[in-house]
């Protein structure tokens, strides 16, 4: 289990947990980041925002936000 920010480009992660308080969880889960959602990493430069693909959409997430999403690497 790793924070989303550590996922390499091309890797797929499955959301396990989201931290960061109820307000943040409420906002981000409405955009599709919920348990068991699959996330493909599209852009990750180890700093600055990441770009992921989730639920039919490309989403940009701040580095801080990406750290709060805990994923399990999915073997492809």
């Amino acid at each position: 289990m790793i924070p989303l920010g550590l996922l390499e480009v091309g890797e797929v992660g499955v959301v396990q947990d989201i931290t960061g308080g109820i307000g943040f969880i409420s906002r981000i889960s409405a955009t599709g980041f919920t348990q068991n959602a699959e996330i493909t990493m599209l852009r990750n430069w180890k700093r600055g925002p990441v770009l992921v693909f989730i639920r039919d959409t490309q989403m940009a997430l701040g580095r801080g936000e990406a750290e709060k999403i805990i994923v399990r690497r999915k073997k492809i």
């Binding site: 943040f24 906002r27 981000i28 955009t31 925002p49 770009l51 959409t57 490309q58 989403m59 940009a60 997430l61 701040g62 801080g64 936000e65």
Partner: peptide, 9 residues
Amino acid sequence: RAGLIMDLP
């Protein structure tokens, strides 16, 4: 500033 959560359509 709420963090960046934005879709790229």
